[in-house]
Design a protein around this nucleic acid. Structure first.
Lengths: 197, 197, 197, 197
DNA sequence: ATATAAACGAGACGGTACGTCCCGTCTTTCG
DNA sequence: CGAAAGACGGGACGTACCGTCTCGTTTATAT
């Protein structure tokens, strides 16, 4: 079987070293000064690269910010052993730990200021924001399949009730974001609020 | 001679008409082109006002955007009659209806891009984002006081589990934001996810 | 008679110091590195001025170059005493002396690269290139009026035959440009080329 | 097998078709948009040629412009029969006719903006600008040799007094450039300006 | 009545960054 | 091995806004 690779395009190929330098510089700027201070000009300067080289790969500073986050992936989210509820609690804790860092704050700001519909915007959403959600989905599905969840359940909504409060607090800042929140969310979600009527 | 009022300052007083023209122009721009297109220069032009007149009242475009939203208040959130659960469901529906409009999307973007700690930022958060949350808190508290909630409950977390999913979907756009979501959230929250173990 | 001065325009007036700094910096650059090296960016930097401040007054680098020359006027052209022919010869010598300098070379280059029809272009042409021609015209007219010229004469053409060769050599560089040229031009012009037929 | 020709260089020979396409595209651009709009990039695009292919033959856009003019030669200048003065007048008319076209204007601008000392610059000057001057020189020399010119004459200066006014008007644009100018120049040159003193 | 004070519109200021064009060079693949 | 294709680092373009600063004018209160 011959290697019918995608036909190589003519012309000089993109400089991978330049690409990496750009992403690294962008990440450094975002982490130290915030997304709002990320300018193409500054990245070009600090990466030792021409501006057009950046614009050739990314349409604007927001896209570059998203690409920078995607190029610097965080640790995997753990999904430890134990009963469904315990595993989900541990997972949510690790999500909170990840997003309550400066990196998490900047990711949220980037998400908020970016175009939702661009190709890169979708990729960013899926890889950076929703990757953990997929882990959570697997935990929930596993719990259902193993028969430990006895009620019918809208998984999508349940997932949003797990992660939504976290990002809500991160974005609005009306309440602290700490690990105890994971416990309370999971407890409330699983126990429900019993009503007498 | 009593002078109950705060001593009137010397000089020409602020022009209330100018203030209104500015807020109106700003609101129009935000609603038609988005927060990102709101520039002081453009507001000055469209409001027929000098730039310093704007800077005299607001520190930057973000503050002006927030002020514009606060000056154009939305309808009140209804808290209709009925049992606790029904009232909360109806309330959450009205919140979703309010924030799934273009106005809601822009408010969320404004929130995300604004300084959290400024005075105006806090006011915006409380008046525009969290006003509905206070309504929800009253409904929850009333349910507890009236004895219909029989489990112990962390109200803050419960509230975030009501509103968090809404803003999460609004911000990330991974799932549709419709009125059925209110039903599912409330059901899931009150029933809980029964576990066999 | 009351001073019915032109109504002062509203707004902050132009900064005369900035204007002068720009023209001075531009002149310095043109004289040291040539018109081709005159960039708005560099002028802004060396004059300690923002780019828009320059663009507010001049449309592009060519206009700025012309303005810089006009703001740094050369010495007046002498029109010494003596018979018409001698005075014209002396005048042409001073023109050659003026334009065979680096400044003269740069003026010619500027002229060639500039838009002829712009308002500033016309002013530059009249003030910098053709000012000497007006002096020459007066000398010729005076000679005619005083009766020393006995033939009919197309003054415009005669003037171009005086100055044309100078700029032709300056531009094309096929022959040296020295003071003797003035003598030869004037002699040839006044004596004519006698023909036997 | 004899090899009469200059030793053929190794490797693929220059593509003559490419060379022609480049010169043609350059000429088209210069004639339609002016020398100022001639960029290597644009020529490469319009000629369907790589940029390095152009740089292999010409050092910059000015050289290319000059080469383009030289590759598109104008009609020969006529030197008709008749007495010296008539022949020179007719010749000067044809020069004016040639240079008062858009092509003539662009040639002058190209000349003015180009480096005088480059090899191509000299060639351009001699072939395009001064070719006619050589014709004029022959006419003047013939007149002298045939004895019809009775005064001593500096031929170089006389030539510059013929062509100088034409290019002066072309460059500066202060007076119209029409065929009558030829008549007046020749008349003035040959009759001289008689003085009473 | 008349200063005096402050806000007004207008608009220029020194700056920063934008996104684009073109420079002249370099690197890769194709013919 | 030259030519096309096209990316590279770099420089400058001309524009949009920033937030600040004069201006001359208008509108109040305080003398």
């Amino acid at each position: 079987m011959t290697n019918k690779q995608t036909k190589r395009k003519a012309g000089r190929p993109r400089n991978e070293a330049a690409r990496e330098a750009v992403l690294e510089a962008a990440y450094k700027i975002v982490m130290s000064d915030g997304v709002g201070r990320l300018t193409i000009e500054r990245v070009a300067l600090e990466a030792g690269v021409g501006k057009p080289t950046i614009y050739r790969s990314w349409a604007n500073a927001q896209e570059l910010a998203m690409a920078a986050f995607m190029a610097q992936p965080e640790d995997e989210f753990k999904s430890p052993k134990g009963s469904g509820m315990h595993r989900i609690r541990a997972h949510l804790r690790s999500v909170i730990k990840t997003f309550s860092t400066p990196r998490g704050r900047q990711i949220t700001l980037t998400l908020a200021s970016a175009e939702q519909e661009s190709e890169l915007g979708k990729a960013f959403r899926n890889q950076v924001i929703l990757k953990s959600r997929e882990t959570g989905r697997k935990l929930l599905e596993h719990a259902i399949e193993s028969g430990s969840v006895t009620t019918s359940l809208d998984i999508e909504t349940a997932l949003d009730m797990l992660y939504g409060p976290v990002f809500f607090r991160l974005l609005v800042g009306h309440n602290k974001l700490n690990l105890e929140l994971a416990d309370t969310i999971v407890e409330t979600l699983f126990d429900g609020i019993a009503l007498s009527d």
